[in-house]
């Protein structure tokens, strides 16, 4: 019986993922292009928001990815801490910049959407604020990876940071909700997207979300394999120095 941990071997991981990569990449392109074109051109305008609502097809998937990528990093960090599989740590490292970019996309599209909707680019709405804080967590995580020379040390430290950071990120989310209610009365600015979205908008959104997920998988494969090769190169160089 083949175990999933077989793929913890860097070589096995690289061979398998590189066979998968073209499939995933093509699927990502199809879903993204298909979903976005469907969403942008073949859905009716919202009766209240007009065509501005269509940024939804980028905003929602990127926001979901921003959170889920942190979740994926948490899982891979735990796997590294418990089972010491290097591929797992490197996958977390590879995912972080993608997550940060997704957070920026979510924040940016949110601002662009917010301007016509709420008349402001930025408001200290709980969701917006939480995403900004999440972005700071991504930045800190990446900076810690970059600052440490020894790969194993860096993997250990960033994994613990990811764990502790997750707890504090959740706590921040709760605190921010609490804090904002102290200022505003009720959540007047936040949108309950899922509830008032009709099927006609929802299907293309699902396709776009699938596209973002596949895009993420493709990027993580490429980046993880790059990290594995870089790691291998560093190990060889270090050994050459030792003689």
């Amino acid at each position: 019986m083949a175990s999933i941990w077989e793929y913890a071997n860097p070589l096995k991981f690289m061979r398998t993922t590189e066979r998968l990569l073209p499939v995933v990449a093509v699927a990502a392109a199809v879903c993204l292009i298909g979903g976005l074109i469907w969403g942008f051109f073949f859905t009716p305008d919202d009766f209240r928001q007009g065509s501005t609502v269509k940024i939804f097809y980028i905003h929602v998937p990127s926001a979901m990815m921003a959170i889920n990528i942190w979740g994926m990093m948490l899982v891979t960090s735990l796997i590294w801490l418990v089972r010491r599989h290097h591929v797992s740590a490197l996958a977390a490292r590879a995912a972080a910049p993608i997550g940060a970019v997704m957070t920026v996309i979510a924040l940016f599209t949110g601002a662009v959407w917010g301007q016509p909707m709420w008349g402001t680019w930025w408001a200290w709405d709980p969701r917006l604020t939480s995403f900004l804080i999440l972005f700071l967590f991504y930045l800190g995580y990446m900076a810690l990876w970059a600052a440490i020379e020894n790969d194993d040390t860096a993997a250990d430290l960033t994994s613990v940071l990811c764990l502790v950071g997750s707890v504090f990120a959740l706590l921040s989310r709760y605190a921010v909700n609490f804090w904002n209610q102290g200022l505003h009365q009720g959540a007047s600015l936040s949108l309950d997207k899922e509830e008032n979205v009709a099927d006609v908008f929802w299907y293309p959104a699902l396709v776009a979300i699938a596209g973002f997920v596949l895009l993420f998988v493709a990027l993580v494969i490429v980046r993880t394999n790059t990290e594995i090769r870089a790691r291998r190169t560093r190990a060889l160089l270090a050994r050459e120095r030792l003689g």
């Binding site: 913890a8 071997n9 860097p10 070589l11 599989h85 291998r232 190990a235 060889l236 050994r239």
Partner: peptide, 13 residues
């Protein structure tokens, strides 16, 4: 001492 191998393992060596 370890020998250089194309087939690297978990430790990348």
């Amino acid at each position: 001492r370890s020998t250089l191998a194309d087939n690297f393992d978990e430790a990348f060596l």
